[in-house]
Design a protein around this nucleic acid. Structure first.
Lengths: 270, 270
DNA sequence: TCAATAGTGTCTGTCAGACACTATTTT
DNA sequence: AAAATAGTGTCTGACAGACACTATTGA
């Protein structure tokens, strides 16, 4: 069945807004009674430039930080934005996200869990035109400084608390907020928190990850029991760390488990 | 910093696969030593046609069904596929998904929870070219029959068990499988299962939703206690249903709760 | 010694698994 | 009455919240 696309509003005999799909009978009525020229299109489609945007989180000095760049070009020149870029020929969105991660932060994307979160497609979200962005979440161990992007604008860690009060380019405020909530849920149901830690870490450090991301305090004893009791979460290294005042903490590595079951309960929800 | 894009494989002095990004020094070396003509591009971008594909699930005769269409055109003509379509001017992906839902199944998209799940972007996933699809999950109460699509090919309910043994068009087998797993997780952490039921339903019917989607049996007594004990999941109507042999079951409606906390435990995982 | 952090033991409340039991209908 | 389904009561085990307690370091 052929479909016709109304280029402009038609006012006869019924008000038809632009963009309406008419069936052949309606089309004939509109043309005959209105004497209107109608452009025939099989199916109105829209081409878009796909992009991958990154929410890269890390913990610096016990506070949650996100990697942001200062935009060097219009639009939104000078404003902070999430790092990201256009899909190139032959790339999937995952490829693009991995490449951008390396370019913007110097991190090796093959060693970081990079997770697709959501796709944003509002027609007006980018003034340059139809740009549909897919957001990826990366969770990195504490990084001292960003190793400068290649041709990207200055990239830097920004404290989450700080960034939430700042205006970001495009719809990146909404994206950051929603992705942050996604990351918080991930900590409940997966063992991904260990990805925030260095290769070897103590249970106290792991707890600080949860506290920083969730923004609350946890009971150290119960946390200890929970993570040690979850099979596959932690692997004992047999070594200890003695750098603080207090009893030396045992060092662990990430275990093979991916899913945290039963989940880690977030006190705010109960 | 300018970036150059290698159109074809370069074989001098190092093997450079097509698509590689060269920095200026590498470029000069390649051109000088290889005498190669290189097309200069600022940033190779790729335009894509965004589409929304739908996984519409329902339960018919206590079995999980998915809405599939028979493709009427090449490619994959005659094969089963997920319903879906191209984004039209002015539409977001959510708009497209809602429109397609109505067109393909006759359902009102404003009354159904339509949830974005994942975006698939492998360059070769569609032989027609660069088509990036975002998958939406819709969960519908038991529908007697599909009310025929407008111009779409024949749409029909197919039992999940059956469809998993069938070859589907494009990468829709993978999409269906992964979205199904997503739906199963949704039942654990949200109250969305009630969306499978008619407006008023019994606890037994709600249990059958879980059993059909998870593909396992549940203990009726414990299920009863769990859902009645979760505040906001069910709203008592005061009425009862007497159509089967057995004690009449109380009728409920959906409550305001969206999140199921603590989650409904899936026996297979414990 | 004191302060600080790590780790253990244990009580309690909540809730899922299991199952016996009651309740109310159709056949 | 028998079969079938709905709903309740209750025991048990797993586990989180709470907190006292021990262990081991630096200052």
């Amino acid at each position: 069945m052929a479909v016709y696309f109304a280029e402009r509003p038609i006012d006869l005999p019924i008000q038809v807004p632009a963009g309406t799909i008419l069936n052949p009978r309606e089309l004939v009525a509109a043309v005959v009674e209105g004497g209107l020229r109608v452009q025939t299109v099989r199916r109105p489609r829209v081409a878009a430039l796909p992009t991958a945007d990154l929410v890269i989180l890390t913990i610096r000095e016990q506070r949650l930080n996100v990697l942001l760049v200062v935009r060097g070009k219009e639009p939104y020149r000078g404003l902070l934005a999430l790092p990201g870029g256009f899909v190139r020929p032959g790339e999937s969105l995952e490829d693009t996200a991995g490449r951008e991660l390396t370019e913007e932060s110097g991190l090796d994307s093959s060693k970081l869990p990079l997770q697709q979160v959501h796709t944003y497609s509002m027609p007006e979200r980018d003034p340059r035109g139809r740009i549909v962005t897919t957001v990826f979440l990366a969770i990195a161990p504490n990084l001292p400084e960003v190793t400068g992007g290649t041709d990207a604008s200055r990239a830097d860690w920004v404290e989450i608390e700080e960034s939430l009060g700042t205006r970001l380019a495009f719809d990146h405020e909404q994206i950051l907020w929603q992705t942050l909530e996604h990351a918080r849920r991930l900590l409940e149901y997966t063992t991904i928190a260990a990805a925030f830690c260095p290769k070897e870490f103590t249970i106290g450090e792991l707890r600080q990850v949860y506290e920083a991301v969730w923004g609350i305090g946890l009971n150290p004893q119960n946390f200890h029991r929970k993570v040690r009791g979850t099979e596959g979460f932690l692997v004992d290294t047999g070594r200890k760390r003695t750098k603080q005042p207090g009893r030396p903490a045992e060092l662990f590595r990430r275990g093979p488990a991916q899913i945290l079951y039963p989940p880690m309960l977030r006190p705010s929800q109960g």
